[in-house]
């Protein structure tokens, strides 16, 4: 028995090696590049470079847009998930399926769809013109970027919320009603606290990708709007300053870690419900 237990432990070995090679060492490399200058000497400059007005502005804008996107997604998705939970049993599977179907379209094609709609001379532009309404091109504005983010990440909020909401025992809700709670109290005292794990994983799944995106801002921002993701991407692809890019990535990682830590405070059981 002992021998076979040892053999089983060996099965965890290959992936341990893989993780060290492709997860741990890569992160250490980012840290090494982030804390060294081009000549290899130790420096904090790449990290403190976040304080330059250009970078601070990008980070602030990223935070503002991704927080807006997360808030809008939560406000849109919660009622949707509640309605989906309450919808008739027979067709439930199909309705839920309809609302997460766009998730399987390629991420860039989803963004491209909004470019088509919002572009200067695009479809909305033409429609407004026909109707004699003032024509505005949204591409190149923060609104377009938030729209693109919400459109892309909304299913990531709907799914975990729906998954926790359907698991809530109807008996708990009925018990609350029997004991005299009105609809508002049932929601506020029973449903909302029980759905916290779903809210937490929904927020993480929307906030992190929208904070670090560079594709959405690149396509819908008409390359006029720089988010922190765009700045980091450019340091690596065009400016070729890996040290600065790594330093800024480290700052971004710290921001993500802090927000995760703050969120996990609410998800005490650590139940990820995203899948």
């Amino acid at each position: 028995m002992n021998k076979s237990a040892f053999h089983k432990k060996l099965l965890a070995g290959p992936y341990l090696v893989w993780m060290i090679g492709f997860t741990v060492i890569p992160l250490l490399l980012i840290a090494w590049y982030g804390f060294t200058a081009r000549d290899g000497s130790f420096t904090l400059e790449n990290v403190t470079a976040i304080r330059t007005p250009e970078h601070l502005k990008a980070l602030g804008l990223s935070l503002a847009l991704s927080l807006t996107c997360t808030g809008v997604c939560l406000l849109l998705a919660y009622p949707l998930a509640m309605i989906l939970k309450g919808s008739g049993l027979g067709k439930k599977g199909f309705i839920v399926f309809i609302f997460i179907l766009p998730m399987w379209m390629n991420f860039l094609l989803r963004t491209y769809a909004w470019l088509n709609l919002l572009d200067d001379g695009g479809i909305l532009f033409q429609i407004c013109k026909r109707l004699g309404l003032p024509t505005v091109s949204l591409v190149g504005t923060n609104t377009a970027i938030v729209l693109g983010m919400v459109y892309n990440y909304l299913p990531f909020m709907v799914l975990p919320l729906y998954n926790v909401l359907v698991k809530i025992d109807e008996n708990v809700i009925n018990a609350a009603r029997d004991l005299g709670a009105n609809s508002f109290q049932v929601f506020y005292k029973v449903i909302l606290p029980l759905s916290f794990p779903g809210i937490v994983s929904g927020i993480t799944m929307v906030f992190v990708p929208s904070l670090t995106t560079f594709a959405i801002s690149d396509l819908l921002g008409a390359r006029k709007i720089l988010l922190i993701g765009n700045i980091i991407e450019q340091e690596f692809s065009t400016a070729n300053n890996w040290h600065l890019g790594s330093g800024l990535s480290l700052v971004l990682m710290v921001f993500i870690l802090i927000s995760m830590a703050a969120l996990s405070h609410y998800d005490k059981n650590g139940e990820g419900t995203s899948f």
Binding site: F22, L29, I30, V208, T212, S249, I256
Partner: peptide, 26 residues
């Protein structure tokens, strides 16, 4: 072990992609 396994899930794709690129180059 589980904490290491969770790193790519928690890390943003941007950092995962960049860090892998640095390793391949190195």
């Amino acid at each position: 072990y589980m904490a290491l396994n969770n790193i790519p899930l928690l890390n943003s794709d941007l950092v995962t992609g960049l860090s892998l690129m640095l390793v391949f180059i190195t």
